[in-house]
């Protein structure tokens, strides 16, 4: 495989893996919670690194996922007990965890790969250089493997718990009354979001993961009234964004993850304005039409 093919492949897998749970983050209105998670998992990575002293240890992933889930739990506990809004609770937890992580890195891990820049702006361009080899046989880039596994997990979760995700998102009280514990589904989703965030760290960096999660899902949301279609459209847009993002990044010789994020932002805005169902342009058009019709009616009345 050529390098650009490998990078494109990784980009697509990362984009789709992020976009899938993103659908439910957008529908549940917890995109900012996921933004917090994608940053606070860093604390988990750092802590696990201090224990293992090995950047490739799977413990890093487990530690990070745990901290991600702890983030959700703490945000929700503060919100409930102190009666502050969710975004205020995020404003407390997110900077706390994140800055502890940054301080730990600057104090103790200054000379390893764990530097702030790499963490904030991971880079797809280097992803193909970390490879998996089994008995000397090159099995392809490590991040492709990791993210493929996460992608499959996310897809299976949505496939098997589709009904449960749908009902606990749409009407949690009713779901609870029927015996579908919304709490379980919620934390399962948030665990996967954390895991996805950790997996995507290397290639995308924490700033952009949220864009990968929210952008395509928001476009999907604006384009259809059916949840199944929303999921398909979201995946499709994630693929288109990442493929064209990689091409553009090579063309302009710039950051790949950054370029995909720009394309994602751009397509989302495009959909926001031109969506045939709920777009701003359509709304304007409808209003104009309605006004004309009304004018006519009023004229015939007078």
């Amino acid at each position: 495989m050529s390098m650009i093919t490998e990078i494109t492949l990784i980009a697509v897998v990362v984009a789709v893996a992020c976009a899938l749970p993103g659908v439910f983050l957008v529908l549940r209105g917890v995109t900012m919670v996921s933004d917090a998670i994608t940053h606070t998992v860093l604390l988990g990575i750092v802590l696990a690194f201090f224990i293992t002293q090995d950047l490739n240890s799977p413990l890093l992933m487990i530690g990070a996922t745990l901290v991600g889930v702890a983030t959700v739990w703490l945000i929700e506990t503060i919100q409930r007990s102190a009666l502050v809004s969710t975004d205020a609770a995020i404003g407390i937890v997110f900077p706390l965890f994140f800055s502890i992580a940054i301080i730990l890195i600057t104090l103790y891990a200054g000379d390893v790969h764990l530097d702030e820049d790499a963490v904030l702006m991971g880079d797809l361009a280097f992803a193909p250089f970390r490879r998996v080899d089994v008995f000397g046989l090159d099995m392809g880039p490590q991040s492709l493997w990791v993210m493929s596994v996460i992608l499959v997990m996310n897809a299976l979760f949505i496939f098997f718990f589709y009904k449960e995700l749908k009902i606990t998102t749409f009407d949690p009280a009713f779901a609870a009354a029927l015996g579908f514990t919304p709490m379980i589904i919620h934390y399962a989703l948030m665990t996967l979001v954390s895991l996805t965030a950790v997996g995507a760290y290397d290639s995308v960096g924490s700033i952009l993961i949220v864009g990968f999660m929210v952008g395509p899902a928001l476009s999907g949301y604006l384009l259809t009234h059916s949840l199944k279609k929303m999921i398909s459209i979201t995946v499709l847009i994630a693929v288109v964004n990442s493929v064209s993002g990689v091409q553009l990044a090579f063309f302009f010789d710039t950051t790949i993850a950054g370029m995909i994020a720009v394309v994602t932002g751009f397509t989302t805005l495009l959909v926001l304005v031109f969506s045939p169902r709920k777009g701003l342009y359509k709304q304007q058009l409808n209003q104009k039409r309605a006004r004309k019709l009304l004018d006519k009616r009023i004229k015939t009345l007078t």
Binding site: F170, A173, F174, L227
Partner: peptide, 17 residues
């Protein structure tokens, strides 16, 4: 009923729930 009215779902779907 405190549901998300903008949820991508149809009347048929809601009854099916």
């Amino acid at each position: 009923t405190s549901v998300d009215w903008d949820f991508p779902t149809t009347v048929r779907d809601v009854v099916l729930m």
